[in-house]
């Protein structure tokens, strides 16, 4: 049986498509262990006193929302549970909408939380690290108003916040550049603000060197698995937990593909030897 490489690709694509879809329709229900970097992030949020102002930077867009949005929701929920007040900013233009969506969803669960008091969305600014450095000097000059065009000084939550230094911790949910790296360099390295991150699973290993004795990074959530672990820690069944089953099936499938690929290569090599 001869299959050309284009057809082979298509077969792989179709099998994967079906394999990921089936568990979504018929859930299986595997549980997982909590990894240390997720625990570190959870502890950082948990150990921050009530009433503190914290900052979540939405440095992603809809394309990575499956992984990062559940994190945003869990993190805001955790902060609100502890009566912390949340500032949302964005280094990516589309992050603003992601922040709004997260707040909207949680307001259904926590109707008493008030815009401007318990949370505020300051919106997007270009410039990445340059912007963060400017925030470390003076937040108001960077964000003259929030996304509802309410002037900075009229927002009760921001009364005590002059610069980044007045913020207990920054968590950057980042799909790339600018993102966690800029926050580490700008906020932690320059102004000593605690920084943790949530990122796609792919980028996570690249940030591990920053979890070090310098505490450049206080914790890291990498991908859907971390998001589901965070949900587990919060004791909620969230969107991330449900999707882990599909994940596991897809992982096995890819391993099977690798195995088939090797069998095929082995046969090819053998037939070449015989041919000689």
């Amino acid at each position: 049986m001869k299959i050309d490489s284009q057809t082979e690709r298509r077969i792989i694509f179709i099998v994967l498509f079906i394999a990921v879809m089936l568990p979504l329709i018929f859930p299986i229900g595997w549980t997982s262990e909590v990894s240390p970097h997720v625990q570190m992030t959870y502890d950082m949020v948990d150990n921050t006193p009530e009433g503190s102002v914290v900052l979540l930077s939405f440095d992603y867009d809809p394309s990575t929302a499956t992984e990062l949005q559940p994190m945003a929701i869990s993190l805001i929920e955790h902060a609100w549970k502890n009566n912390q007040r949340v500032i949302a900013t964005a280094l990516w233009p589309m992050g603003v909408k992601m922040a709004d969506a997260a707040f909207q969803e949680l307001l259904l669960k926590y109707p008493s939380k008030e815009s401007g008091v318990d949370f505020v969305n300051l919106g997007y600014k270009t410039g990445g690290m340059v912007t963060i450095q400017a925030m470390g000097r003076d937040m108001k000059s960077v964000f003259p108003t929030d996304t509802k065009t309410i002037p900075y000084e009229d927002i009760p939550l921001l009364k005590t916040v002059r610069s980044l230094k007045d913020i207990q911790f920054v968590i950057s949910l980042s799909a790339g550049d600018p993102g966690i790296k800029q926050w580490i360099m700008g906020a932690h390295d320059m102004f000593g603000v605690k920084v943790a991150g949530g990122t796609t699973a792919v980028s996570a290993p690249g940030f591990l060197p920053y979890i070090n004795s310098q505490n450049q990074l206080y914790g890291l959530l990498g991908g859907l698995k971390a998001a589901s672990e965070y949900e587990q820690l919060l004791g909620i069944v969230g969107p991330a937990t449900v999707k882990m089953d599909s994940q596991s099936v897809a992982h096995v499938l890819i391993l099977v593909f690798i195995a088939i690929g090797n069998v095929k290569a082995y046969k090819k090599r053998n037939s070449k030897k015989e041919g000689k």
């Binding site: 792989i12 694509f13 994967l16 499938l253 593909f257 690798i258 088939i260 690929g261």
Partner: peptide, 13 residues
Amino acid sequence: AFFIASAAYRAFI
């Protein structure tokens, strides 16, 4: 998701 599967199949020999 599809490309990572096809890349793994092809390259991890």
